[in-house]
Structure formats: structure tokens, C-alpha cells
Design a protein around this nucleic acid. Structure first.
Lengths: 261, 261
DNA sequence: CAGTGGTCTAGACCACACT
DNA sequence: GTGTGGTCTAGACCACTGC
């Protein structure tokens, strides 16, 4: 099937590389886009084994090296995970190592305290109409259905984080406080398996604030305890905004750790 | 024809790949290490053009593709910068685009305020003996010579950041408040040209705090204004700690922006 | 034009995991 | 052993820069 003929040279530009300059895109970027489409379309679900590099090369009519470069980039973006000898898998939030990729609050003295998952308490989960502000950040229309989830995370029995989470109602139809409470997995793992939504990228804006009366009560802190306010936008494939989360963190025994490189 | 020419096989392990398993390291990683050594030794200085991929391939007796992979990684770590048609250069903090790689405080409303470099005021610059704490983080001995620099950064005439910076005395011999004040370049650019130190990587720990009396005075804020405390460790080549910096940021009109991916 | 990095291919062999 | 990803090579051509 894979005869090497001069005609194969014509196959070197199979996708859209015929024109010279206008919006030139390397072959491996086009392959990357095609793989991304399959991921978004759900052809391969989180945790699945995707076809081998040679299979994909045959499917897309390019060399294995070109597929490799496309997959390399997707792996560096944590959309795929390579495992030598086994294959390439769709990344999932259900893995232990990935649990804290988005939660950057670390204990000041690791080892002295438990590193395990936090204790989670759902305050409430309501279906509401989006305000102008919520609609804007989630790219919805004002009045569209949205879910508001509010919860408290505790480490070592100390309430440390209060979060106010907004989600598009259409995508998360059927979300309830009970479901959130019963599920012991990370929230993003449940989003994957129950709603087919995988968070791929996020952006956080940090500020120092003083707590509202409600937060004082929920976190058991005084009104003059400074807190770290973390406003997070999470995106799924193709940079679609999927979650708006406003958290306030106690930072008296923990800190937000950030690597700059 | 799949004849394996023994001579080619011998050339496949030119550096130190003779043994099978013990501490195996890919060729391109070894090349990367050699290039890193040249960078650290100052063979090529920030801003310099380094030899072409083919020259390096000849020097190290490997193929150009292997050198390419080594340089790719160094470029992704911002140690080198590739420019198509021109060559590969040693990265430098003197470039505009790199100016704010380490300063993540962004205006809430970009465009409405000036984006230019902040106005910098040096409070003082003293040569002191390292306390136990300073010695520990900078990997020195207690009592070793260190510099303490304190300064205030203002944006649009609003004092916004106070920083307390600690540097190893031996490496930064000759540093003075006057020199810091007169130099209009970013501090890290001066470190490169005047002291041969290039900051490569950093780590920040963030907390919310209330200001000390001194900070209240310097930043013109009240004692109950929450501030973002940013503790930064900066490292040069081979992860040697070279700077300890404790900053407090006003976050009423700006925020600390962080991309999670 | 020559020289550089950027892309693509084809084939070989190595390291690892499963059966 | 077979199949996977991981490394390395060699050679071709493209795109950009500057003479």
C-alpha cells in the first residue's frame, strides 16, 4: 500500500499548502488542527488511547515525523499524554498527578500537614439567569440560563477557600448540589465524564482584598484578615470560555506558588 | 537495502552513549548540556550570535537535527532566541519584549493607563552581613557580604510596589544606589552587562497581607489596605539562586495575571 | 546570491510494555 | 516477539535575511 513513487511528492502538500504565501501554515500545524478537531468532536474521549503515530500518518497521508511534531505540541499543552511502549492517550483530570494543576495554593510547610484532597462542602447550587457581567465573560446573552455553585474547601479542618463558580446552564444541564456533594472526584473530572467538557487552559487574576461579612462567616476569619482573591476563567478546546470562578483564599499558613520561566 | 554499516553505528554514539543502561541520557540532552556550559562560561554573551546549527553539529560530531532539538529546548526555556534567516542568539533582558516577563502586575483597564516602564525610586542600597535567613535562601554562609536594595515603583505617579531585594555581595561587588538610580534599563539588564549575571528562572510565593507602618508611608496607603506580598527567588544558570526579592503590590487598580496551561 | 533557521521525509535502531 | 513511542541520521526543499 505504501509504494514510493514520484507521485508521493505531490502528496507532500495534501492539505492546503498549494498556494505560496497567503496565510501559510506548516503541515504539522494543520495535522495538529485535525487532531484537535477529533478531540473536540469527542472521537477520542479523555483517557482513551488514540491511534498510533503510523496510523495517523497513514490517515493524514503524511510522514510519521510530521505527526510526531503535531503530537509533541499537543502533549506539551497537556491535551495528550504520551506513554512509551503503550501509546498516546487523551489527557484527563481524573489522574492524580493532574489534580492540582489548577490549584496553586501550597502549604508553607509541606510534610507537616496533609497533602491530600481538601474536604469540600457545597453551600448551594442554583440555576439562575445570567447577569450582564456573567453573560459577558461566559460569552452568553444576558438572561441565559447559568448555574451558580458556591463551596468551601477545608484543609486539615481549616476552612481555607471560598469559591463562587459560574457555568453555562445549557452545557451543564442536570447539575445539582447533591450530585456535586456525592461525587468524590475533582470537579473537573466530573465535568469530563458527566458533561463531556474538558478544561484545557485557564487564566487567573489575583488581588489582595478584605473579606465580606459572608466570607468572614464561612471562613471563620475576622473582617481585617487580608485574603487572596483569585478570579479564574477556564477554557475548553478552541479557547471557549466554560467557567468563571471567583475564589478567596486564606494565606496565613499557605501560599500561591507560581513558577516563572 | 537495509545494510547496517558498522562505521555509521560507531558514529551514532560519539559523546558518551557507549554503555547501555546506566544513567542513559539522549544525545541531544548531552548537546544541550554542552551548549549550556558555553553559555554559563560566557563563551557567548547575552545578545551574541551563536554558531549555526551546522557549525555546532560539526563541533560536537552529531547531525544537525540533533543540535536542532537541543537548541529547540533552550529556546523554549528562553535561554536562546532563534531568528529565521539570521541565526540563533543568546537571550537578553535588554529586549523590550522581555521587559515584563517577570513583572506580572497588569493594569485592570489596559489602554486607559500608560503601559510604559514604571518610575523607579531607590530608597537605599546597603552592603550588610547576611542573616541566617538571607544566607539560607541565597546559599551563602551567615555573615557573608550581601547587598540590600530597597525601592519603590510608581505607575502614573501612583506608588504601587515596594521591593526589598537581597543579592550576594561577592557577585555584585561595586553595586551602589547611585548606579542603580542612574541606569535607565531594567535592573536585570544591568545585572547582565555589569555583573555578567543572567536571571533565567524564578519562583514566586504570593500572600495577602496588611502593610507595615513603613510600607504605609512609602506607598501612601492606610494600615487596613490589603496588599499582595510577592516573594521571589531568582535563579541563574544551573539553578543557582542569585536574588531574593520581597515585594508588596497595591492591587486596587492592577492585578497579578497568571496563565495556567 | 549565499547563509540561516524551518519543514518534511525516510529509514534505522533503542527503550519500554504487554503477551 | 510484536508494537508502541523515543532518538538519531541524512538529505531535500522552503522561507527569510542581507549582501
Amino acid at each position: 500500500m505504501n509504494a514510493t513513487t514520484p507521485l508521493d511528492n505531490a502528496a507532500n502538500q495534501p492539505v492546503s499548502q498549494g498556494l505560496v504565501s497567503p496565510s501559510f501554515s506548516p503541515l504539522y500545524q494543520q495535522i495538529k488542527g485535525l487532531v484537535l478537531q477529533s478531540l473536540q468532536a469527542g472521537e477520542w474521549k479523555p483517557g482513551d488511547l488514540i491511534p498510533s503515530e503510523f496510523e495517523l500518518a497513514a490517515r493524514f497521508k503524511v510522514s510519521q515525523g510530521t505527526v510526531r511534531k503535531a503530537i509533541d505540541e499537543l502533549a506539551k499543552e497537556h491535551l495528550l499524554v504520551r506513554r512509551q511502549g503503550k501509546g498516546t492517550f487523551v489527557a484527563t483530570h481524573a489522574e492524580q498527578q493532574v489534580q492540582f494543576r489548577f490549584l496553586k495554593l501550597k502549604p508553607d510547610n509541606p510534610g507537616a500537614v496533609s497533602q491530600g484532597p481538601a474536604e469540600r462542602r457545597i453551600i448551594d447550587c442554583n440555576r439562575l439567569r445570567a447577569s450582564a457581567e456573567v453573560a459577558r465573560v461566559l460569552m452568553l446573552r444576558t438572561g441565559d440560563s447559568v448555574f451558580q455553585v458556591r463551596r468551601v474547601l477545608s484543609f486539615d479542618d481549616v476552612p481555607t477557600i471560598f469559591e463562587d463558580i459560574w457555568l453555562p446552564g445549557a452545557t451543564f444541564k442536570g447539575l445539582t448540589a447533591e450530585r456535586l456533594s456525592k461525587d468524590t472526584r475533582p470537579m473537573y473530572a466530573m465535568f469530563e465524564s458527566d458533561f463531556g467538557i474538558r478544561m484545557v487552559r485557564a487564566q487567573e487574576r489575583l488581588r489582595a482584598v478584605l473579606p465580606s461579612d459572608e466570607v468572614c462567616d464561612l471562613l471563620k476569619v475576622s473582617t481585617n484578615t487580608p485574603l487572596l482573591k483569585v478570579e479564574r476563567m477556564s477554557f475548553t478546546y478552541h479557547d471557549s470560555p466554560m467557567e468563571w470562578r471567583i475564589g478567596v483564599y486564606r494565606t496565613d499558613t499557605r501560599h500561591y506558588l507560581n513558577e516563572l520561566s
